[in-house]
């Protein structure tokens, strides 16, 4: 995505872009979990295990979101930085952005689920 990052200005721009990208990745995963949760069908009968399944997928997506963010950050920016001082600084922001992105995913998914009418698939994730 970028050429070598050698100056402080480029580093700051990369950091900004990292935060924005990871936020967008987080939002993308929200859409993803909504789709997945809706794809998991209700289980008929007395004991319905589907909410648990949806919950598991929720956590799988959270972890995937984290690692996707880290991966994108690495390939888009970190590998273009050679100056040791920049690398140390960027890694901190890279991890922070990935965590924030995942938190955005988790937080907004939670809010959306809690706002649903009860007995919907999404609502069942966080009973």
């Amino acid at each position: 995505m970028v050429s070598k990052i050698t100056t402080a200005v480029q580093l700051h721009q990369a950091e900004m872009a990292t935060y924005m990208t990871d936020a967008i990745i987080g939002i993308a995963f929200i859409v993803l979990i909504i789709i997945i949760a809706n794809m998991i069908s209700w289980q008929p009968g007395a004991h319905d295990g589907s909410p648990a399944k949806r919950r598991v997928w929720f956590w799988i997506m959270a972890v995937t979101c984290l690692f996707t963010s880290l991966g994108v950050n690495y390939f888009s920016w970190l590998r273009h930085i050679s100056k040791a001082q920049f690398v140390t600084e960027y890694i901190i922001h890279m991890i922070a952005a990935a965590v924030v992105g995942s938190l955005i995913y988790a937080g907004i998914t939670y809010i959306i689920c809690k706002m649903q009418k009860k007995d919907t698939k999404l609502a069942s994730i966080f009973k």
Binding site: A8, H12, Q85
Partner: peptide, 16 residues
Amino acid sequence: DAYWDDMHNYILNATD
């Protein structure tokens, strides 16, 4: 073109 903040952080406080 650089800002003094950056010059302070990356030139004066440069690390190897």
